[in-house]
Amino acid sequence: MSDTILETTGLTREFQGFVAVNEVALRVREGTIHALIGPNGAGKTTFFNMLSKFLAPTRGTIRFKGRDITSLKPAQVARLGLVRSFQISAVFPHLTALENVRLALQRARGASFDFWRSEQVLREYDDRARQLLFDVGLTEYVETSAGLLSYGRKRALEIATTLALDPEMMLLDEPTAGMTHEDVDRIVELIKRIRQGRTILMVEHNLSVVEGLCDTITVLTRGRILAEGDYATVSKNPEVIAAYLGTEHA
């Protein structure tokens, strides 16, 4: 269908001899939603941490848009258009929702080292920030401190902030974990709307979310790829069923 946007080869990470991610070769095609699933401790977050450069791989390479990004710094990778979210919600709690989103929009000015200028100059981003907050259903909370938002709304704010960077590829680590049913539905709808022109790689435990959203699924267990394919194929794989017995988080 389309080209590979992200590719890892032999990606490995060890923690004092314990191999958390083991020789993972993953290809993500441009414009798809790709799910990474697997039991707790499978190495999904560790894998994400390596893609976003928060952790250095022990071995292996990462290519993004044909470019080797294995030795880049986290902020550089983000500026190339590969932006991550976190498993634990990551907002700036004492800043308002508007300010949270604006911090991402502010990146468009380049590095904001201008300590002598008034923050009034950031007002030019207010309209765009309000629009993004509207898109994720947070219009009422524009001036609320992010720390006071409910869990589901924090995740929505996080997605709005990530979207503000207009990244080509998003890494979402369990975007619906710990959410109520309605919140999950809202996030799913949101992801459907924002997928246009983007690639999304997401870790997700909720298999109905995966089924409804994702084009390709990769199953990771104990740091290795166990299976890969679309939902129908993967869900019938006996090894996958065995690995998931008793650990499913539906």
């Binding site: 986290p74 902020a75 932006v83 991550r84 907002v91």
Partner: peptide, 12 residues
Amino acid sequence: ENEPRATSLGYR
């Protein structure tokens, strides 16, 4: 407030 998040937004 959240240094890893600031990094992930592309700030050094």
